[in-house]
Simulated scan of single mutants.
Amino acid sequence: MSLASFSSHSPHPSLLNTLPEHVWRGDQMGSHAARPVTSGHRALDRELPNGGWPSSVLIELLMRHPGIGELRLLAPTLSQLTKAGKTVVLMAPPHIPFAAALAELGLDLQHVLLIEADKPADRMWAVEQALKSDCFGALLCWLPQARADQLRRLQLAAAGSEGLAFVFRPLIAREQSSPAPLRMVCQPAPAGSMSVEIIKRRGPVHAAPIILPLTVPEILIKPFNSRTMVDSTLSFPRHAMDRFTSAAATARSHSALAA
């Protein structure tokens, strides 16, 4: 039998039944060595490999623009991690998150670190260093201009870490190849919910978007002038990152990650 004729036919069912249990099949949900972290959304967990967010890999969230509710989507996971004393790193968000709203969503702000990096090259360098440090429970990074080769470097760095690595990219990147094993398209849906479509995972093709209800912090609903001084003074540590700063400044940043 020629190679062409062999490859044009599906394996015989009896052959599939003889495969060892540890061999992954294309119609099965993939597994991961590390224990997954629940997303806090049952409908989403059912579609994620092993029933939760996988660690040691890039998780790519594609959005038309930032601020559509990505932090509210991840809030149950981030709350769980910070309450366990693990650091959540917000790397170069396009807008400074409202600390009081994050606190209302259950995050312990003592374990949330904001790192600012204005230049794309500095931002990419900072993300890679954070991944290599492996001193975080979750790393959230906004990378609107990431190239495929840069993402491959980050995926290699993530493989040596144990935390969750979320990368936010523009929706147009959907048509581009990516080394991220898990890719999702996130779009706003009615009543403050979010539509999540898994476009890449280790497992069968995802059939349809999942509509997830998201919590809206009460403080965001209040008129601005009715917010208390306590609300406005809540904050978390902030650090500026520049590749060309002194070695001492870089050491301080690493110390902050490990805190």
Rank of each mutant, 00 (worst) to 15 (best):
H65N: 06
D134A: 15
A84P: 05
H9E: 15
A34Y: 07
A148T: 11
L131V: 02
Q129I: 00
A4F: 12
P204H: 08
L114N: 10
E70G: 03
T228L: 07
V23G: 00
S55C: 12
R227T: 07
V37S: 08
H65T: 09
S2H: 04
P204D: 06
G160H: 12
L154I: 01
P209D: 10
V88Q: 04
P204Y: 11
R35L: 13
P217R: 08
E175Q: 13
K83W: 09
N50D: 14
L212P: 03
A208S: 10
S161A: 14
H206M: 12
G52Y: 07
R25I: 03
M124L: 15
L234I: 02
A180T: 02
M241Q: 05
S39W: 06
I59Q: 13
G67E: 05
N225Q: 14
A249D: 13
A251G: 06
R152P: 04
S7M: 08
R153S: 09
L48T: 08
V127G: 03
I221K: 15
I59N: 15
A180I: 00
E47P: 00
R201N: 13
M91P: 00
L62V: 01
P36K: 04
F168G: 01
P120M: 02
D27G: 12
A191D: 15
H22L: 08
H9M: 01
M29D: 09
A248C: 00
K83D: 15
A99K: 03
V127A: 11
M229H: 08
V88H: 05
V23L: 14
T250P: 00
V88K: 01
P76D: 07
T87C: 13
L131T: 02
R227F: 08
D231F: 10
P54R: 11
V216W: 09
W125Q: 07
I59G: 08
V167Y: 02
L102Y: 12
G163Y: 07
F166T: 04
K119L: 14
S253I: 13
A247Q: 10
